[in-house]
């Protein structure tokens, strides 16, 4: 009898040990965050992504099946600044996972890593400004320096959830920073020709990219988020773009490219469609690759 009890106890303890060594289940809302989590988590984490790169993350259809991955998660990493407000609350309700509820260690708002949030409204906000984000522009992952910051934050949170692997998480985040920093400098230097002329962008998505690369953004065709631009606004912007010598109108793959193409033609500018998320276009399969494509396309269009 004693032998049986000992064997049973050993089996249970063994099962617990194996369970403890299993990778943390990490669910990220965006492909950019998913790529960063994979680098930081390594073999200590299994990463799933809710919003495929092809979808505009503002408007992901909240398929209940997405809640299943969220239901098994140890850690949810989300962009924050209300980018996912249209679908993440629904999925969190359906996931029924207390570990990733707001306020739990398993729920990480990655925007907390930012040193500066751009375009935080300084005055009253109303819907007359469109579907404005009251906490600031949420597209901060288009500045790779923010990707480095987010990776460091992920490492800290993963370390809290799995203390025995905390050192490995920190080391991987440091390795990632060391690998990205020279490339960030190189991309910045390569973008020099693009700084010669202001750009027009289709939607207010590229402010962080412009802030990092030192680009001038003259204005957005869709100047009120989520609201179709009026002909009067496009006329006014076209006049300013022609006067300023704009040569490029940048847009995300999910923008209304027919309207963007017409606006670019009127401005005498090239329409440059840039990957706005990892996996949103061929060639942008990883976070660094996305910036390779972005900078190469901007430079190529500036040279035309």
């Amino acid at each position: 009898m004693k032998t049986i009890l000992t064997l049973t106890l050993a089996t249970v303890l063994g099962a617990v040990t194996i369970a403890g060594a299993e990778p943390l289940q990490v669910v990220c809302t965006l492909t950019d965050l998913g790529w960063l989590a994979e680098q930081v988590g390594g073999e200590d984490a299994e990463v799933a992504v809710l919003c495929p790169g092809e979808y505009d993350p503002h408007f992901l259809p909240a398929r209940p099946s997405l809640a299943r991955a969220l239901g098994k998660a140890d850690l949810l990493c989300y962009n924050g600044l209300d980018l996912e407000v249209g679908w993440l609350p629904v999925l969190l309700d359906k996931a029924r996972n207390p570990r990733v509820r707001d306020g739990q260690p398993g729920c990480l708002d990655c925007s907390l890593a930012l040193a500066t949030v751009l375009e935080v409204p300084s005055g009253p906000v109303s819907r007359s400004q469109g579907d404005v984000h009251p906490q600031g522009n949420p597209h901060y992952l288009l500045d790779p320096r923010n990707g480095v910051r987010v990776a460091a934050l992920m490492a800290e949170r993963l370390g809290e959830l799995r203390p025995e692997a905390a050192g490995r998480f920190r080391q991987r985040a440091a390795d990632l920073a060391a690998a990205l920093e020279p490339r960030i400098a190189a991309w910045h230097a390569a973008a020099e020709p693009v700084r010669a002329h202001p750009l027009v962008h289709y939607s207010k998505q590229w402010e962080y990219l412009a802030d990092w690369l030192g680009l001038q953004l003259l204005g957005a065709v869709e100047h009120r988020p989520g609201i179709s631009p009026s002909p009067r606004h496009v006329d006014e912007l076209t006049g300013r773009a022609r006067a300023a010598g704009v040569t490029e109108l940048v847009a995300a793959p999910w923008n209304h490219l027919d309207a963007a193409a017409k606006a670019a033609e009127r401005m005498g500018a090239a329409l440059v469609v840039l990957p706005a998320a990892v996996g949103s276009q061929p060639g942008a399969d990883g976070y660094p690759e996305m910036f390779e494509v972005i900078v190469a396309r901007l430079v190529a269009a500036a040279g035309e």
């Binding site: 398929r63 209940p64 249209g86």
Partner: peptide, 10 residues
């Protein structure tokens, strides 16, 4: 609709 942004049901 006025007020906070509603989440969209699937």
């Amino acid at each position: 609709t006025i007020g906070s942004h509603p989440a969209h049901l699937y």
